[in-house]
Nucleic acid binder design. Structure first.
Length: 878
DNA sequence: TTACCCACGC
DNA sequence: GACGTACGTGGGTAAG
């Protein structure tokens, strides 16, 4: 049994907590926010890390030994706010109640205490985790020492291992010192070398290794200016290095073995919590704290490389990775397969597996359960090799996404790291990146892949437990997982494109663009790059003296809404607008689409990202088929090029009418809104009637337009500012509209108020199907952050529930098409719309079942309504 | 390569 | 009143 030592940088964490949380005080008027934040974090650390030994280190007093060498050290720092200072003694009391030792040392900082204690790593049996918000501590990272840094406030930490640092910052732990020496650090008043920032510093360190290395080879430094600066500020650089180096031999009077931790006494703690008014924490200490599993770093891993697949390696429950370099799995090739199960870890070279009947047989058996990362990708790559995988019942990607969609790194090593399993390498570490990317020798490749499958195998249970605790198991198993396979089939099938149609359009556009360019250059009096706002700006606003409406960070804004306001000022403007419009069509939609058509089949295979958006919507890329033009006729014609795959087939498009507003009516349970939908009224007209207090006949076009914008705002969670922009009115007026809207729909108003309260209370909001979005900023003292979080709280349940609904509809429709033995099939999803292709003979049936399935996939307080259309191309399905 | 501007969809 | 304002993907330019 090895020892697990947790070292907490007390000052750093309490500062973080203080600034991350609003200024709470208890009933006696004592400020407690920082202590509260610290305590919640502490509870989590105890759960997650299960330390056998623990210490919280604090800075002592104002001066340190560092001031002797540099008296300006930490100069210019703002004084600690008194609201925070008064919490230090409280925190120490809380630590005592936890029976957690804390320590400080005259003339030394918490860093040095931690640095010194972390050297126990050298005695083999210790594992150390350092917890801080200060990047300087990263220099302590090693094989035995993990440094967890707080991210965004204190609600999240990021665990740095040497490998993770390499991946994220591209430097080794001890180079942090050199990095800081070069960059300096404003907050500690460390000078560094002026003009050298992170980018330059990393570049130098990659070349020369250390600060000393740089100065030993100063002549080899590229760039005259840079060399000069380095030479001039050499002393400062070395002084800085000295200052940022954490002491590993401070004269501390504690020893690691004295820090043994046997847990806390809930009774003692609850007294303390009651006194402080930490109501919500009382529950947490009552229950058991041994729940979360942690895993020891696995140093070595056994891999069996198979030259032949025999069915005796399979057990019926294995983790599978079909490894592929690059993003696009429609065109990529498999490098090899990894399989982990109870018996061991196997690497199968791609050609061995793909020619093996035993492998195919195993893959296609539904009863053989597979744990994978990205079921959709796995399905598609295997389909491309003629294997139809079945029996996938764990998808780490989807599980991770559902647990926290705002986490933007969902690859196996990142997820594993977060769950305490730190022995999976990042792809970049193994393959390199960019032009230098390459496949390593087989043994290395095999081990890398096997570490992934081993992680899948090891973490399935833990992740599913978490989903279960969130009540998201159904969302995961019954919605996202089945959908992944359907999306995979849709992507794999692809959409047929009429290439010559696109090319003809392109040729026409090319001519028109050339003509326009010439005309615009003549009107401008000089040639310039029309696609460069930077060049266009001065022409419009200096040479032609047009009034400046808006500026951007780097110059004049030439965005469409600006140009539209100048439309009558100069004849160049309408031509520019047209040029922009056509240019977009040409570059993005004609050329862009032609670039991604499969030349053998003339089909386009998009990729839907099912684990990306914060709301639960899908996204689509390479190409994005969710933003094909429709608003303007000219652009809409692009859709003529999307045609059915077979002769005698048609395109069939069905879309939900006002799904978000209907969802809102349901969730808010607003009488008026519900009635409007039950009677199937034109919702924007109805809103106009309610907001402007007129009858139907009294609604003018302008009123309806404004009402529509307000509805739009409600659905997308825009601010009064956003609404003012879209309506071209002042913010005040926009706010008035929103207020009037809420007056008219009191149910909506109270729903919105409640949802914000709920978000504040539990830290997240949920959708109909229990999808979550965490909103840590909801309690921010920063008005903007908080406002944004509040709008998000209001908007996400609406948009996210709509996303849930159409996802479920896709699953239902897929099943129904199969049941009815139809050849019709889904091709695309565009948020509230499904596009299918089908034989003409099935048209009648589709007109019956598609709306039926979509409208009744869930039953709400209001009816869902689906419109549909069909034709010989996507364009004609309108 | 990266940052910025712009524009398309929902 | 602050401050920067729905979410995505992708094309282009310009600067490093």
């Amino acid at each position: 049994m090895s020892n697990k030592l947790v070292l907490i940088d007390g000052n750093s964490i309490i500062y973080r907590a203080f600034f991350a949380l609003p200024l709470l005080n208890n009933d006696k008027g004592v400020y407690t926010n920082a202590v509260y934040g610290f305590t919640t974090m502490l509870l989590r650390i105890l759960e997650e890390e299960q330390p056998t030994h623990i210490l919280v280190a604090f800075d002592a007093g104002k001066t340190t030994f560092r001031h002797e060498t540099y008296k300006e050290y930490k100069g210019g720092r703002q004084k600690t706010p008194p609201e925070l200072s008064e919490q230090f003694p409280l925190l120490k009391e809380v630590l005592d109640a936890f029976s957690i030792p804390h320590y400080q040392l005259e003339q030394y900082e918490a860093d040095d205490i931690i640095g010194t204690l972390s050297t126990v790593e050298k005695e083999d049996d210790w594992n150390v985790t350092v917890i801080s918000g200060d990047k300087d501590l990263l220099q302590l990272t090693s094989d035995q020492v993990t440094v967890s840094l707080t991210k965004k406030g204190i609600s999240e930490v990021e665990r740095y291992t040497p490998a993770f640092m390499k991946e994220k910052m591209d430097i080794a732990p001890d180079q942090i010192i050199d990095l800081k020496a070069l960059m300096g650090d404003k907050s500690d008043n460390i000078p560094g070398v002026p003009g050298v920032g992170e980018k330059t510093a990393v570049k130098l360190l990659k070349q020369f290794g250390t600060l000393e290395g740089i100065y030993d080879h100063i002549e080899e430094v590229s760039g005259k200016k840079l060399k000069e600066k380095l030479t001039t500020y050499k002393d400062e650089a070395f002084l800085s290095k000295d200052l940022v180096t954490i002491k590993r031999d401070s004269p501390i009077t504690v020893e690691p073995k004295e820090l043994a931790y046997g847990g806390y006494d809930p009774n003692q703690l609850s007294g303390m919590f009651k006194e402080l008014g930490f109501q919500s924490l009382l529950d947490r200490i009552g229950g058991d704290t041994t729940a979360e599993g942690t895993s020891e770093p696995m140093k070595e891993i056994d891999v069996t490389i198979l030259r032949e697949v025999t069915d005796d390696i399979f057990t019926g429950k294995e983790a599978l990775v079909a490894e592929m370099l690059g993003e696009n799995y429609h065109t990529g090739t498999i490098e090899g397969f990894g399989i982990s199960n109870e018996k061991g870890n196997y690497f199968i070279p791609a050609e061995v597996a793909l020619q093996s009947a035993a492998f195919q047989e195993w893959a296609e058996q539904y009863d053989n359960k597979k744990m994978v990362f990205d079921a959709k990708k796995t399905l598609v790559v295997l389909l491309n090799h003629g294997i139809h995988i079945k029996g996938i019942d764990f998808d780490m990607l989807l599980a991770s996404y559902l647990l926290n969609p705002s986490e933007n790194n969902h690859d196996i090593p990142a997820i594993s790291n977060r769950l305490g399993k730190t022995d999976v390498l990042y792809d970049e570490e193994v393959y390199g990146k960019g032009a230098k990317q390459k496949v390593p020798e087989e043994q290395v490749l095999a081990e890398h892949i096997i570490r992934k499958t081993a992680a899948l195998y090891a973490l399935e249970e833990q992740m599913e437990e978490k989903l279960k605790a969130n009540e998201q198991l159904e969302l995961y198993k019954e919605l996202e997982m089945p959908l992944a396979l359907i999306l995979g089939e849709m992507e794999h099938l692809g959409v047929l494109v009429d290439i010559s149609n696109l090319e003809e359009m392109g040729n026409g556009l090319k001519q028109r663009l050339q003509d326009l360019e010439k005309e615009i250059h003549e009107l401008a009096g000089e040639p310039f790059n029309l696609n460069s706002p930077k060049q266009l700006g001065p022409i419009l606003f200096e040479k032609l003296n047009l009034p400046v409406i808006k500026k951007t960070k780097t110059g004049y804004s030439t965005a469409a809404d600006v140009l539209e306001q100048l439309e009558n000022e100069h004849e160049i403007i309408p031509k520019l607008l047209l040029y922009r419009q056509l240019g977009k069509l040409q570059s993005t939609y004609i050329e862009g689409l032609l670039k991604v058509v499969d030349p053998h089949t003339n089909k386009i295979h998009t990729r839907f990202n099912q684990a990306l958006t914060q709301t639960g919507r899908l996204s689509s890329m390479e190409p994005n088929l969710q933003n094909i033009p429709i608003r303007l006729e000219e652009g809409r014609k692009i859709r003529q090029a999307f045609v059915p795959a077979k002769k005698g087939w048609i395109m069939f498009a069905a879309d939900y009418s006002q799904i978000e507003l209907r969802v809102l009516a349901h969730m808010a349970n607003d009488d008026k809104l519900i009635r409007a939908f039950q009677e199937d009224l034109d919702i924007h007209t109805q809103t106009a009637m309610d907001v402007f207090h007129v009858d139907k006949e009294g609604v003018t076009d302008s009123m309806r337009r404004q009402a529509k914008a307000v509805n739009f705002g409600i659905v997308y969670g825009i601010s009064d500012y956003g609404l003012s922009q879209s309506l071209g009115i002042t913010r005040k007026e926009a706010k008035k509209f929103i207020d009037r809207y809420f007056e008219s729909y009191p149910g909506v108003k109270s729903y919105m108020d409640e949802i914000i309260q709920e978000a504040k209370h539990q830290g997240y909001v949920t959708t109909l199907m229990k999808r979550r979005r965490y909103l840590p900023d909801i309690t921010s003292r920063n008005f903007n952050k908080r406002s944004f979080a509040e709008r998000t709280a209001m908007n996400t349940p609406i948009q996210g529930s709509a996303a849930d609904i159409i996802k479920k509809a896709m699953i239902d429709l897929y099943g129904r098409l199969e049941e009815e033995n139809l050849n019709a099939r889904m091709l695309l999803q565009v948020h509230d719309e499904l596009i299918l292709e089908a034989p003409k003979e099935e048209l009648e049936k589709l007109m019956e079942i598609v709306p039926e399935v979509m409208e009744h996939t869930v039953e709400l307080h209001i009816p869902l309504k689906v419109d549909y259309a069909y034709g010989d191309s996507w364009f004609d399905a309108k």
